[in-house]
C-alpha cells in the first residue's frame, strides 16, 4: 500500500483497520492470530493437501474406499482439520460420470483441502450458471464432456463441503504418489478440469 495518498473513511482499507483495532482493544481478537491465519492460507494450505489424498486414492483401493465412504474419518486420521471442513464428501469421477462443485449461495469451499477459492468460483456467473447449464460452463472453461457423460453438480453448504476425486490419467501406472499428486490440480478437484496428463 502506498503512503502517498489518503483514503476516504469509507474505503475498505480504513474500515478494516478501524474494525480490527476496535476488536483488539476490546480483547476479542489477537492480532498475531490474524497474521498467522493469513500466513497459513497464503503459504501453507492449498490444493497440494487435497492432491495428496487424490494421489493416494489412485494407488490404494482401500484408501479410496475409505475416502469415498467416510472422508471425515480419513481426514481426522490424517490430522487434516481446520476452518470449514467439518463435514466433507468426496465424489469420484469415473467413465460416464463427472462431478462438479459449486456454492450457489456464497462461496463455501473445503479450505483445509484446497486453500481459499479462486475468484471465478466466487463469481455470480459461475455460481448461477453451473447449476443451470453445467455442460456449457465446463466447455467454456476448457472441459468438453460428451453427451453420454452424466454430470452431477454438488451445491456446497455450511454443513457439507465437496471434493472431486478426478480420474487417474492413463500412462501413469508406474508413477509414485508424489508424481501423481503433481498432476492433481485445484481445478480438477473442483471438477472444472481433468487431472493433468503427461
Amino acid at each position: 500500500m502506498s503512503h502517498d495518498h489518503s483514503y476516504s473513511a469509507r474505503s475498505p482499507k480504513i474500515r478494516i483497520e478501524a474494525l480490527e483495532d476496535l476488536l483488539v482493544e476490546k480483547g476479542l481478537v489477537d492480532r498475531s492470530r490474524i497474521d498467522n491465519l493469513i500466513q497459513k492460507f497464503e503459504t501453507d494450505v492449498g490444493p497440494m493437501i487435497g492432491a495428496q489424498l487424490v494421489a493416494r486414492a489412485w494407488t490404494d483401493p482401500e484408501f479410496r474406499n475409505r475416502l469415498l465412504d467416510d472422508a471425515d474419518d480419513v481426514l481426522s486420521k490424517e490430522n487434516i482439520s481446520g476452518a470449514e471442513i467439518e463435514h466433507v464428501e468426496v465424489k469420484a469421477n469415473e467413465p460416464g460420470v463427472h462431478n462438479v462443485v459449486v456454492c450457489t449461495l456464497c462461496s463455501c469451499y473445503p479450505w483445509a483441502l484446497l486453500g481459499l477459492p479462486p475468484s471465478w468460483y466466487k463469481s455470480p456467473e459461475y455460481r448461477s450458471r453451473v447449476v443451470r447449464e453445467p455442460r456449457k460452463v465446463l466447455a467454456e472453461m476448457g472441459l468438453d464432456l460428451d453427451e453420454e457423460t452424466k454430470l452431477q453438480v454438488w451445491d456446497s453448504s455450511s454443513e457439507t463441503r465437496f471434493l472431486v476425486l478426478p480420474e487417474r490419467p492413463s500412462g501413469t501406472e508406474n508413477f509414485s504418489v508424489a508424481e501423481l499428486a503433481a498432476l492433481v490440480t485445484r481445478d480438477s478437484m473442483i471438477g472444472v478440469a481433468r487431472a493433468e496428463t503427461l
Binding site: I16, V29, I38, E42, V45, G46, L116
Partner: peptide
C-alpha cells in the same frame, strides 16, 4: 509438499485489506 496456493491457481488476496478482513 507445501506449494503455495498461487502456484496452483492465482493470488489468494488481491490487496492486503482483503487478507485482514479474511483473517479477522
Amino acid at each position: 509438499n507445501v506449494e503455495p496456493p498461487r502456484q496452483n491457481g492465482e493470488l489468494v488476496f488481491r490487496e492486503p485489506w482483503e487478507a485482514r478482513a479474511f483473517g479477522l
